[in-house]
Amino acid sequence: MLVVNDLYAGYGMSEVLMGTSLAVKRGTVVALIGPNGAGKTTTMRTISGGINPTRGEILLDGKPVQGLEPSQIARLGLAHAPEGRKVFGPLSVEDNLLLGAFTRLPHFFGFQAKAAGDLDKIYELFPRLKERRRQTSGTLSGGEQQMLAIGRALMARPKVVLLDEPSMGLAPVIVDEVFDIIRRLKGSGITLLLVEQSAKRALEVADYAYVMERGRIAVEGVPQELQKNERVIAAYLGN
């Protein structure tokens, strides 16, 4: 569903990705782990169009999307819940969710009615968002903002979801909640690329995983293998 081939990208003069390749099959959860600064976020931003790759290819459902604008790639079915959540702070929770479905909804009238079913599903997944639907999203707690970022991405009914460090800065109980949600989404057949600091948790939920180091994939495999790989244990699953 999502294929990245030999990707090179960076910021101005500094190359960050140097030949990254990975693939996410339909209906699978794939984890991308690695140390700080390895280029995980850069990979996601390049896939969703925020950075133009200097070389390589990105296929979304078979179509090359490298070089397109982020909004065009979003319209082709990619949803990216970015690092740091990036909710629209001045807007209400519900407006954030509605904007998540911007590509599918009428832009003037009748969008609320058309989105009602999707909103119900999101609120079922995140009851706390329903309680706070009218609240300004900038005033939500970190955990709630993360839920909102995930819900907003799902509203697009995307083919592929990119989720960058959903556990960043959250208390352990909230992290558990977030991973429960990811597990439920996996059960419902989501196609997900997940970047996580917490390698242990990511490997528990993933079908397949990549370990990124300095802009390249260093190790890959199914979680059961990686959990036994000594290099991975030493670097990411220690103690």
Partner: peptide
């Protein structure tokens, strides 16, 4: 009241995130 109007505010709040929603800044 319109979704496009809310998209205005989204672009103003976070241009990059708005683009990720398919809103062309």
């Amino acid at each position: 009241k319109t979704l496009l109007g809310k998209a205005f505010e989204a672009v103003s709040a976070d241009r990059d995130a708005a683009e990720l929603m398919g809103i062309s800044a």
